[in-house]
């Protein structure tokens, strides 16, 4: 299973291509694909967004879904999705949890 990720051009924020067709700032709403056709579709979206100067460093990454939550397989992507592991007050992990407000 894969999702599409990049960094936003203007501020470098890590973003994921979401189920509603936008670049989201958190991984939980990323659109997942399960086959070559899905991957090709995301790749095309990534390339278009790159060409359109919305994002940089576009990558398809491997994930699994556990209890409905998306988990990247590589630690690198876990850290991109959360923030530095030594500074829990920084990055996405520092934001109030969705729905918790």
């Amino acid at each position: 299973m894969k999702i599409l990720t990049a960094n936003r051009l203007t501020d470098g924020e890590a973003v994921w291509f979401s189920t509603d067709g936008n670049w989201a700032e958190t991984i939980d709403v990323a659109a997942t694909v399960y086959d070559k056709a899905g991957e090709a579709r995301l790749e095309a979206i990534g390339k278009a967004a790159y060409d359109n100067n919305e994002v940089v460093d576009v990558n398809l990454i491997d994930v699994s879904v556990v209890d409905g939550a998306i988990h990247p397989l590589r630690l690198r992507e876990v850290i991109r999705a959360a923030g530095p592991t030594n500074r829990l007050d920084l990055g996405k992990q520092a934001r109030p949890a969705a729905g918790a407000a």
Partner: peptide, 28 residues
């Protein structure tokens, strides 16, 4: 010009690097 989309990332990368700007995991 980069933010306005007038130059591409491929063109911009060497320029930003010359000025000390990298892209890391979470941000520039």
């Amino acid at each position: 010009r980069r933010l306005a989309g007038e130059i591409t990332e491929d063109q911009f990368r060497p320029l930003r690097l010359m000025n000390g700007v990298y892209l890391q995991l979470h941000a520039y």
